[in-house]
């Protein structure tokens, strides 16, 4: 029963992440929605799958390893894209920008 609840939570989080990518105003806030909701939703769904299957222990371990790799890789790519977008010349719509003070 608990795996279906985890699945529903993950799907709802994924849908809100997609809505956030569509609605937020600039790249950095879109990256917020993409990274957090994608990582959380994918990890929750993979955890639900690991609870659902029962052929052997290694399949569960592989799914957990996939979740761990997603949690490791997704934020890293998001930092790289954020820094690249800043260097590409996109000005963030912010109230205070300490990065522009230090790197004129």
């Amino acid at each position: 029963m608990i795996e279906y609840m985890l699945l529903a939570f993950g799907e709802v989080v994924m849908v809100f992440g997609a809505l956030g990518i569509l609605r937020f105003p600039d790249v950095y806030t879109r990256l917020h929605a993409a990274t957090k909701c994608d990582t959380g939703g994918a990890m929750t769904i993979l955890l639900a799958l690991a609870l659902y299957t029962d052929p052997s222990v290694f399949i569960k371990l592989k799914l957990l390893l996939l979740a761990f790799l997603i949690a490791l890789i997704n934020p890293m790519v998001s930092h790289a894209i954020a820094k690249g977008a800043y260097k590409y010349g996109i000005k963030p719509k912010v109230v205070v920008d300490m990065y522009a003070w230090d790197n004129p």
């Binding site: 994924m14 992440g17 997609a18 990518i21 790249v27 879109r30 990256l31 993409a34 994608d38 939703g41 994918a42 769904i45 993979l46 799958l49 659902y52 299957t53 399949i59 799914l63 996939l66 997603i70 997704n74 790519v77 998001s78 894209i81 690249g84 977008a85 590409y88 996109i90």
Partner: peptide
């Protein structure tokens, strides 16, 4: 509107495809 937006969208779609492949395999 800009190139980094497209990159963000593509990365997110690829993560969803990874999850779809895992669900299909199970």
């Amino acid at each position: 509107p800009t190139l980094p937006d497209r990159v963000v969208g593509l990365n997110t779609i690829t993560t969803k495809v990874v999850v779809i492949i895992a669900i299909l395999s199970v």
